[in-house]
Amino acid sequence: MIRSLLATILWASASATAWACPVCFRMEEGPVTAGVRAAIVVLMTVTVSVLAGFAVFIRGFVRRSQTLEPRPPSQCFGEPRRSSKSGGGNR
């Protein structure tokens, strides 16, 4: 807790140079810089959306695992429940 608080204070108090993006740092303002910025925004949006999706998915797993009955270790890596049509093998 203290460590994260300290890191946040350090990060917030750092100068603007320390926050500089390594891709466009010290680039001249112009169309290329604007293009790079737009590209970064698009890619960050896509990446954050996908990661947020994974986070929601994993949170669902965790919640589900809390409601499930614990299984003995011998069954943990065994085959899951199968339906009547399950055909063995990976198709």
Binding site: P31, V32, A34, G35, V36, R37, A38, A39, I40, V41, V42, L43, V46, T47, S49, V50, G53, F54
Partner: peptide, 22 residues
């Protein structure tokens, strides 16, 4: 999810090229 990343990279390139194009 992997497909979103693939197209995301291409749309990002599109944004770069379009905004930077005169």
């Amino acid at each position: 999810a992997s497909e979103v990343m693939l197209f995301g990279a291409l749309f990002s390139s599109y944004a770069l090229l379009r905004v930077a194009a005169p």
